[in-house]
Design a protein around this nucleic acid. Structure first.
Lengths: 113, 113
DNA sequence: TCCTTATATCGAAATGTATCGATATGTTAA
DNA sequence: TTAACATATCGATACATTTCGATATAAGGA
């Protein structure tokens, strides 16, 4: 599995939802950081963000207390795991949850429990 | 978050099932390795193991192709996340799934999706 | 008791990750 | 066009993780 820096898996939900253990592990790795969990939980909430029409990067600096480059890194990580979607509007990036990553790990977990 | 070597979280499912983001992240980290996912999936199957009465360490060396010390390390990691339970019988360690870790991450995921 | 086997721990090497400051890129507003 | 701002990338640092060989511990059997 390669580094997050030269990001790799944007693990396509190939033809179906099955992802293989490497792909599932990649999504779990994206979920294995408290700051990223905080970000995802915030995206899942009904918060509107500082611009009133979505959550952008500066909102996430506020709620995590992390620097802008660090947030950018975390969002790239979540994108590569298909846990979020990003859309550029003006100079802002707006983020939303992407169900594909969540479904992939839930499918694995259901095999176990 | 501390290293896995000087293992720390055996994150007690404190009083209830709520675990806090650090605790949940710790479980996700234990789930973020393909070898460990393979081990858990094997423990969830109806395989009986080489001794016929449960899955022990040597079974896991076979299915992962990893060395004995590496397996031992992975099992310690899964234990610390409450994803498995271990029981010593004779000179063997027998492993089973522990629902607590799974429930913790599933509870988090349900907040998101 | 001594040997064999299962597991755990230690030490080390290679690689991966989180974080930030500095800087580059791109977009809006003046 | 220029200034201000949001985001991305680079480079560096500190630390974490995976893996194995060597060795220790513990249990059973000859």
């Amino acid at each position: 599995m390669s580094a997050i820096m030269q990001l790799e898996p944007n693990i396509q939900t190939n033809t179906n939802l099955e992802l293989g253990l490497d792909g599932v592990a990649w999504v779990f790795k994206a979920l294995s950081d408290p700051a990223r969990l905080k970000i995802l939980r915030y995206l899942a909430s009904d918060a509107v963000g500082c611009c009133g029409d979505g959550i952008c990067g500066c909102d996430l600096e506020d709620i995590t207390g992390l620097s802008q480059p660090t947030i950018s890194h975390h969002m790239k990580c979540l994108l590569s795991a298909n846990l979020i979607q990003a859309e550029k509007r003006g100079k802002w990036m707006y983020y939303n949850l992407d169900t594909r990553g969540f479904k992939a790990v839930q499918a694995y977990l259901e095999q176990c429990c």
